[in-house]
Amino acid sequence: MSALLEVKNVTKRFFGFTALGDVNVTIQAGDRIGLIGPNGSGKTTLINCVSGVFKPEVGTIRFLGDDISSLAPHRRAKKGLARTFQIPRPFSSMSVEDNLMVPLEYVVHDLIDLTNETAVYDEARELLRRVRLDDRKGAFANDLSQVELRKLELARAIAARPQLLICDEAMAGLATKEVNEILDILLDLNASGITIVMVEHIMQAVMRFSKRIICLSAGRVISDGAPAEVMAHPDVRRAYLGS
């Protein structure tokens, strides 16, 4: 079976600084992956390279077997690759519901009948229900709490009907109850067939969520495997706790 995502020998430099050095990662369909690493280890840079926000200097990125290395982010979104952001980036001048209209109109426009406004809004409400935000459909982003903003990011990402969803610290700054709520939503989304890569610092959440963990340090993959195995790896312990 070919991999859903294949990151091969990817290197990304910012002037003299190597943020990612020769990174290789393979992700299979249906996976639940935790991407961990200390601050500055290159997690967000890797996500940005995969989603097309950054272009790596070296290496290739394949999605569903196709080389997407040179594709713009909007084309990757159309191929089924969605992401959320570490700091939520809602479309603040739109309502929650209208935020979802953007991917519905631009990504899945050939799968839904956009002329049928009622059906499109029904679809948006169903997406909001899946992330438990349907009671805030008319609210504007400025009026949302932190956890609601995180849910909006998730709803907007899944509106594009992705096969792979990359969540960049979707639980940062949330209370324990809210972390569990987001975790439940992510597990539900994975159960519905979406492969999820979760970048996270909250280790309890990572351990509960992940079937597999990839650990980055100083722009390199230092461990990749089952959660218990990765957490016991001496390099991972050194990266987090120091030598």
């Binding site: 952001f85 479309f91 631009y106």
Partner: peptide, 14 residues
């Protein structure tokens, strides 16, 4: 206008 990178990642050919 609201969030250019997010728009691009949501499928908008900015």
């Amino acid at each position: 206008r609201d969030a250019e990178v997010a728009a691009e990642c949501s499928g908008v050919p900015t």
